[in-house]
Design a protein around this nucleic acid. Structure first.
Lengths: 153, 153
DNA sequence: GTCGGTGCAAATGCTTTGCATTGAT
DNA sequence: ATCAATGCAAAGCATTTGCACCGAC
């Protein structure tokens, strides 16, 4: 618990490194610290392949032997979102879902209403369409969120 | 309170009529009743021009002198959604927003992040794109939800 | 009398927050 | 010392639900 030396964390290696660096810079810019808890959370998120919920993340952290409180998880998720490392995605009025953001242009999900499966898409055409619509109104698109609901034919 | 004769309501006139009829049929199909409270709620919703929240609706009902409980509002919103008369739209993790659905093909909102203004769009191109993507996967699109975030240039 | 509808208040469940404690600089 | 971070438990808040009562058929 509490703060410990901000030493090298498990997140400091491989493909992980850049994100860790992004997070560090973002925190530094805000006068915040890269703590072990934050490193562990980022680390655990990177290990997820798809979408995850705050609670799953908490479970995963516990499974790894990290002792991080729910409050810290939520606080860190917000910081990671600010840093552009993850994005929040929501389906219904239910809880939030998150995923790594990398350099996504927006966030598009293909949701199977029959099975519940979710696929993340990248739709350049939509970006074009969206930008056109904004331009027509003298606006600039900052992002989008699209959910397509589909089922087996 | 309680049930009263299911007589003609304020919703039974003008442009309003069709929706009222749609609701009635939908309820009947489910073995449910078209009560005064439900009529008043539909009536009040039709009077809204844009998006609204459950709470706003409740306030509006009170202002009209209708005494409808919050529980009934929520229950009726769900029925109206089932009937395809309204659609739920949500921005953030916040509360749900609703709007009349008419014959919309999906639900697309253009949200001004600087002013908070919201415009509802109809994007046939998106429907085409969405259907194409689904077809490629052997799926059938059932609907979509798109939010475009934009700001002044 | 059976059934659905309503209102009220209590319960939910995710998320946030207040507070005391702790660590880094 | 100062300032931010953490954990815990409590609070928030939109939405849902249990329950007793009521009205329509």
């Amino acid at each position: 618990m509490g703060l410990q030396p901000t030493n090298q964390s498990d997140a400091d290696h491989g493909i992980i490194e850049p994100l860790c660096a992004v997070f560090r810079r973002s925190l530094k810019d805000e006068g915040l610290k890269y703590t072990p808890e934050r490193a562990q959370i980022l680390d655990t998120i990177i290990a997820f392949d798809g979408l995850f919920e705050a609670d799953q993340l908490l479970e995963e952290l516990k499974g790894k032997g990290f002792r991080v409180s729910k409050a810290t998880v939520y606080r860190t998720l917000k910081l990671l979102e600010d840093a552009g490392i993850i994005q929040r995605v929501l389906f219904d009025r239910e809880q939030s879902h998150y995923q790594l953001a990398y350099g996504r242009t927006g966030n598009t999900l293909l949701i199977r209403v029959d099975t519940g499966e979710v696929e993340t898409l990248e739709l350049p055409e939509l970006v074009v369409l969206r930008d056109k619509i904004c331009k027509m109104r003298g606006l600039k698109a900052e992002g989008h969120r699209l959910q397509i609901f589909a089922t087996k034919v």
